[in-house]
């Protein structure tokens, strides 16, 4: 009887997830308090939690600044990545002309661009945006390109027979809607990479605010490890929220027709 009740409880949505999360936090608390005993090396979760109250003044401005850097980089990455990806996917000549250049540039770690970001753009928000851009643009470009290459020839033929002959129309009415899921995937991956670049992009002091700037340039030098952890968690949570919001809007609204085609 009792065993059945417990199983039933566990089967409910979210129960196992919450329990495992609580257990993880509990283990962290135990290790921090009873084993490490030094909050300079491992701050315990309850200390981190309390730290947030001290950070209430700082957080809004830091979050906004970081989101600004992120938006600049992601926006530019989407515009450039989608445009170039579409050109390369549709026109063979563009692919041949650009492919080698991209393959040379792509493996360069985004952070290696920091010197040029500073020299070209100066210590501005756009310089941080530039690093995010370098991180985000390639996944968006490659995915858009793949989408355009995969357009089923039958769809093109069907559109042509129905009177859709101009290439610009075939792109607009067939290739773009077909590639939307690919482009969406590219943007999602690009968002992830861009967010990772963000923290380092703020390290070189483009502004007096920003999550990465605060974490690396203020908290860490002052050995405020509880605040470092608080900002780390904040960085993770914001990325999670961004991803969920994007998925909601794109998958629920834009890609309704894909439902049931992708395995859940």
């Amino acid at each position: 009887m009792l065993k059945n009740r417990v199983l039933q409880f566990l089967n409910r949505r979210g129960v196992v997830e919450v329990i495992s999360l609580c257990v993880a936090i509990l283990i962290w608390e135990m290790v921090a308090v009873f084993v490490i005993k030094d909050k300079g090396i491992l701050p315990s979760p309850h200390v981190v939690f309390l730290t947030y109250f001290e950070l209430l003044d700082l957080m809004p401005m830091d979050i906004c600044t970081s989101l600004l850097h992120f938006a600049i980089g992601l926006g530019a990455g989407a515009v450039v990545g989608i445009t170039v990806g579409m050109l390369m996917g549709w026109f063979k000549a563009a692919n041949r002309a650009l492919d080698s250049i991209i393959e040379v540039l792509r493996p360069i770690p985004p952070l290696a661009w920091i010197p040029f970001a500073i020299i070209w753009i100066g210590l501005t928000h756009s310089a941080a945006g530039f690093i995010v851009f370098i991180g985000a643009v390639f996944p968006i470009l490659i995915n858009t390109y793949t989408g355009f290459r995969e357009v089923d020839k039958t769809y093109i033929d069907a559109a042509k027979v129905l009177g859709c002959e101009k290439e610009s129309k075939l792109i607009r009415l067939v290739a773009i809607p077909f590639s939307l899921p690919y482009i969406a995937t590219g943007i999602r991956v690009g968002m992830g990479v861009g967010w990772m670049c963000l923290v380092a992009a703020e390290y070189f002091g483009v502004s007096r605010y920003g999550l990465g700037y605060r974490l690396l340039c203020i908290f860490f030098p002052l050995q405020m490890m509880d605040k470092v952890v608080a900002y780390m968690i904040l960085l993770g949570l914001i990325a999670l929220v961004l991803d969920r919001v994007f998925r909601y809007f794109v998958e629920e609204r834009l890609l309704k027709w894909k439902k049931g085609m992708v395995t859940q």
């Binding site: 039958t154 069907a158 027979v161 809607p177 939307l180």
Partner: peptide, 20 residues
Amino acid sequence: KGPSPDRGMVFQEYSLFPWR
């Protein structure tokens, strides 16, 4: 010369636009 809407065609494979 070239395709035009005066000829309709039904294809062997499923050629419906899945996004419509």
